[in-house]
């Protein structure tokens, strides 16, 4: 058995220390070790997008990222999207307004993906939003409302 690693993760602006096996994914580190369950496990194999978080400002899948691998990088989860917690991020507000979710399980991933999608400049048209939001599956079928929410948030953020 390999030696547990003592690592320090910067999550949502806070340094968090944890002792884990090297094989622990970022997703399991967040959910099982750091009590940050906003990032969801939908497939654990890179096929659904529910675990989308930002690493150094870019959207990635936490289920295919080792926790150890992102030591020293800035990790943002849905819990850290609005650090003060007082107000909703424009993307969150647009999701609520357009009813861009039902069960809510894919939603944190959708929101993290949408924030990045707008930041990347990949939200210039509905067609582009659809393509660049396709890495986040939604079984409830909120897609048209997600597109509407991203479109509106893009305007709010521009």
């Amino acid at each position: 058995m390999s030696k547990p690693l003592k690592i320090k993760l910067h999550v949502n602006g806070v340094a968090r220390e944890l002792v884990i096996e090297p094989r622990v994914t970022l997703l399991d580190a967040l959910r099982e070790h750091l009590n940050l369950t906003g990032s969801k496990k939908g497939c654990d194999q890179g096929q659904c997008g529910a675990c989308t978080v930002h690493v150094d400002g870019e959207r990635v899948l936490a289920c295919l990222t080792l926790a150890a691998q992102v030591e020293g990088r800035e990790i943002t989860t849905v819990e850290g999207l609005t650090p003060d917690g007082a107000e909703l991020h424009p993307v969150q507000a647009a999701f609520l307004k357009h009813d861009a979710f039902q069960c809510g399980y894919c939603t944190p991933g959708q929101i993290m993906s949408a924030v990045a999608c707008i930041r990347e400049g990949h939200a210039s048209s509905d067609a582009e939003i659809r393509e660049y939001m396709s890495g986040n599956l939604c079984r409830c079928g909120a897609y048209p409302h997600i597109v509407a929410a991203v479109r509106e948030a893009r305007e709010a953020l521009s």
Partner: peptide
């Protein structure tokens, strides 16, 4: 009316069974 359980879901505060 927008869904009242919405804020908890979009902030990642809604705790699902395995959480």
């Amino acid at each position: 009316l927008s869904r009242i359980d919405g804020p908890a879901k979009i902030k990642g505060q809604a705790r699902y069974g395995l959480e």
